[in-house]
Write a protein that binds this DNA or RNA. Sequence first.
RNA 1: GCCCCCAUCGUCUAGGGGCCUAGGACACCACCCUUUCAAGGUGGCGACACGGGUUCGAAUCCCGUUGGGGGUACCA
Length: 473
Amino acid sequence: MNDSLRYRFAPSPTGFFHVGGARTALMNWALARSQGGTFVLRIEDTDEARNRPEWTDGIVSALAWLGIDADDPHFEGPLFQSHFAGEHVAAAERLFASGHAYYCEMTPDEIQERAKAEGVNGYQGWSRELGLGPGPGRAMRFRVPEGQTVVADLVRGEVTFDHAVIEDFVLVRGNGAPVFLLANVVDDVTMRISHVVRAEEHLPNTPKQQMIWEALGHEPPVWAHVPVLVNEQRKKLSKRRDKVALEMYRDEGYLAPAMVNYLMTLGWSPGEASEDGSEIIGWDAIEQAFRLEDVNLSPAFFDVKKLGAFNGEYIRAMSIDDLVDACAPFLDAALPEGWDRGRFEAMAPHIQPRLVTLADAPGLIDFLFTDDPVIDEESWDKTMTSEFSAPLLADAVASYASFAVGDWNADQLKATLEDVMHRFGLKLGKAQAPLRVAVTGRTVGPPLFEALEVLGRNETLRRLQVALDRLAA
RNA sequence: GCCCCCAUCGUCUAGGGGCCUAGGACACCACCCUUUCAAGGUGGCGACACGGGUUCGAAUCCCGUUGGGGGUACCA
């Protein structure tokens, strides 16, 4: 372990875990593990979050789902920001004592008025030289010196900010509560954080944080601001308009490794680490290959369709046993209680290449687990209105009825229907359609004869007869 | 308003002066395979925002324009 490499991930609990947060967490994790450093999970527990401990539990379990394991030696935490509250105030006092901060008793309204009257923008350090001491309602502000701050960012290079455009920002509110900006820096200092890897939206605040680091007498950390994730309108992913909760993707049957893989390809490319040019690459390889220096500068669109492609890829790579296990919860939710696991195991290889998410599984095979298939009327109309539908069905019933139980398998069923179709001068694609609708209720689905084999002789014949009766009526 | 960031196919990206008539992946289209739908295979469509420089040579470097995004609270 390299004790001097400490990467922090500092989410605020909000009741769900943001996919953007997942990505930065993953990046920090990859760095900490491959460099032999530590991933520090620090949770910004607000008052509301403290009343809802399940929110912070959610963060830990979301991280665990992603493979960021709290028991891993590289993992430290969770630590809670509120535990350091005393240190926040103490640091502010030191800043005041050393002249880096001063008290100001102007209210936001007064500031706005005066700025308007003077035709200037924002607070102009009006209380700087008043020599005010602490007092009720007085906020502590940072005395921004002349000059400029250069933020050395590992992904974006050196970014220069002119102090002239940074107002004397508030450190501690009039009620004595330190602001987030200060708390954050003090936590980072206290926890000896060496690398701050976070989303780009924090870049404009970084010069302020760097000034605080320096005023506190510390060398600032290595900064790295990675591009934000955006929606189709190129706006930052937001809880209100976008589907951003990691938990929702998990609950819809997206696989963690697929999500992890996809997230890491946003703003970064595995490059040489992927020998075949595909973007499908396992975590171990990602961990070894990931470098902040290789991260892109521009925002990336979170494309659910591409996520789905990755997910399908990962599903197809699963063993049948694993697939069955993974699908089980989704089947529990959708099928009648006590569904036959063996039956699903028999069909699993056939639905595997057809799944985008695990949640798609029940819809593909539910007809095998219900008393009667749900007939899609559109499908019925499309396939049962031909002249040959009824006679073909009748022929099929007659042919299948003569099957011995031991002959009831996909190959024989197919061969027999081929005989039938020849009698009608049809191709298999056409001839199987009425049977498919009669048995499954739909025109599309898993391979028909395999499904019939699983369904069994009696039930298949019964369903075909039901359809025949309906056609006769 | 002010500050900061960004700009290669529809999308995610490769690219760091000649290897680029710009490569891959997802999506899309066509064909093949085929038991419907998928999966798989083959092929196709498709981009360096614009304008100036620098250079023998620019997607790559510089400047500007335009366009996008983010930030700017006694929010976190």
